[in-house]
Every structure is written in structure tokens, then in C-alpha cells.
Design a binder for these strands. Structure first.
Lengths: 127, 127
DNA sequence: GTCCCTGCAAACGGTTTGCACCCGG
DNA sequence: CCGGGTGCAAACCGTTTGCAGGGAC
């Protein structure tokens, strides 16, 4: 529940923040700022790009959303908080979640703070 | 040998291209365009930023260098053609090569075209 | 009532592009 | 000589910032 998550993490509840969070939860398609801005403005009240950036920073800070930076293109945002990796389609550039797997044992020893895998290929639609 | 690599891959040999390639081979520190531009201009003839970009595209195209895009910051370039992963220091942002490891067997089955791991932590200097 | 959020517009940093000139093959 | 590379400057695109006004708590 969004209200509850905001209260719990101390994120101030504004319509803009609510709509952004709602969109990320409903359509888990790794939206970019541009897409979120368009979606929120289509469905609801007016929201500036700057506010979408501000909102996303707040949500990332609060741990409600993760930021995915791939290939130097626009950042994408993901409300899936389970540990997972990412797949990028060579053809259409879409991003999909991939089930989590750990580092091999010999690497695990080295105590990295974080591990993230990026997998590439053609997605089902593009094959 | 640089001359030979250029001839083999059909990259036209200009002083600028030679110096960029030389720098990447000698100091394998994952240089950014900015750093390469500065280094080439310090040591040798004048070279514009646009030409460094052009050169790097040509070298990546020719398969003599790989491009590393991390965290939406400036691209970095690497003359290490062996398969490897990358480590980024949380503190200073430096990038290091990490020995290659494969996907776990259950993932290997899915036939991804490419796999790249990004590891994070503190580098030796920053610990 | 106090902060913090919002919208706007300008600034920013990395990269790309258009163009006239130049040089490698 | 020809095609492609070079330098310069302007354009581009995603993101950040400064600021005045407004809404959450």
C-alpha cells in the first residue's frame, strides 16, 4: 500500500509522488523519466520533469524503488525490490528482470559490496 | 604492434589515432575521453575532442578496444581484449578489471548473447 | 507557520553533428 | 586525386540547479 510505504519511510505524500509510485507499481516496465512524465501527465494532474526527478530521488533514497543505469542511456526505475539481474534486448532495448544468481564461490570470497549482472540477447518479441 | 593492428583491421593510420591507441595500450587505466584528450595533447600533437570520439568509435568498430559504460557517467575505454568483468570503487570511482567467470550452469542454458558483471566495493587504496 | 515540494527555465556535462579544410593511400 | 579524417562550433539530450510561489504536516 503506497500511503503506508510513504508513511513508513518518511516520504511526504504529494499527488505527484503518489502517481509516480503508482505507475511504477502497476506497470513494472522499467520506465524512464520521460515515460513516467508522459504517463503521469496523461492519466492525472500536471507534473514537471523536475518534479519527476525529485520524486524518483526521494523514492530511491527511501528504498522504495531502484535506479537502473544501463549503456549511458536514460536511467530507468524499478519497483521490484527483490534481488535480481537485468536483461537488455539488443534489438528493441527493452529491459527485463532476470532471476537472481550468486557469484561463483571463488569470487564470493572477495567480499564485494554489490554484484549486478547484465545479460544481453534478443527478447521474445524480437526473435 | 599498433601499425600491424591498424593494417589488419583496416583502420586508417593517422597520428591522432596512433597516439590514442598507444595511450590505451600503455596505461590500461580505463581512460575517459577527457583523459585521453588531455594525455594525447600533453604528449604529442594537438587533437580535438571530436577526433578522439571519432577515433574511439573506429577502434571499437575494429574490435581493438572495448567501450565501458557505467553508471551513466562518461564512457571509458579498455584495450584489454581478454574476457573480463569490472569492479568500480564506491569511493574514488576507479575501474579495475576482474578475472572472468561464467554464468552458473542453469543460466548458461538460456543462451544469452553476452554476459557482463559489475562488482562494487572499496578499492585497495580507499580501504 | 514552517519546511519542503513544485514548476519553470537556465545551466551543465558528455556526446553528436555539420561543415570547410587537409592528408593518407 | 579521392575518400575519409580533422578541428571547430553549435546542437543535442538527459540531468541538475536556482528561484519564486504553494501545499503538506
Amino acid at each position: 500500500m503506497i500511503e503506508e510505504a510513504f508513511r513508513r519511510t518518511g516520504v511526504r505524500r504529494t499527488p505527484q509522488r503518489f502517481f509516480v509510485m503508482e505507475h511504477l507499481l502497476l506497470r513494472r516496465d522499467h520506465a524512464t523519466v520521460e515515460e513516467l512524465c508522459a504517463a503521469v501527465n496523461r492519466d492525472n494532474a500536471m507534473t514537471s520533469r523536475a518534479t519527476v526527478y525529485n520524486t524518483l530521488h526521494a523514492l530511491v533514497e527511501a528504498g522504495l524503488v531502484i535506479e537502473i543505469m544501463l549503456d549511458g542511456k536514460a536511467a530507468r526505475y524499478d519497483a521490484n525490490l527483490e534481488k535480481h539481474h537485468h536483461f537488455i534486448c539488443d534489438n528493441c532495448g527493452s529491459v527485463e528482470d532476470v532471476e537472481w544468481f550468486d557469484l561463483p564461490p571463488e569470487m564470493e570470497k572477495k567480499q564485494f559490496r554489490a554484484f549486478e549482472a547484465i545479460l544481453r540477447g534478443k527478447c521474445i518479441r524480437c526473435q
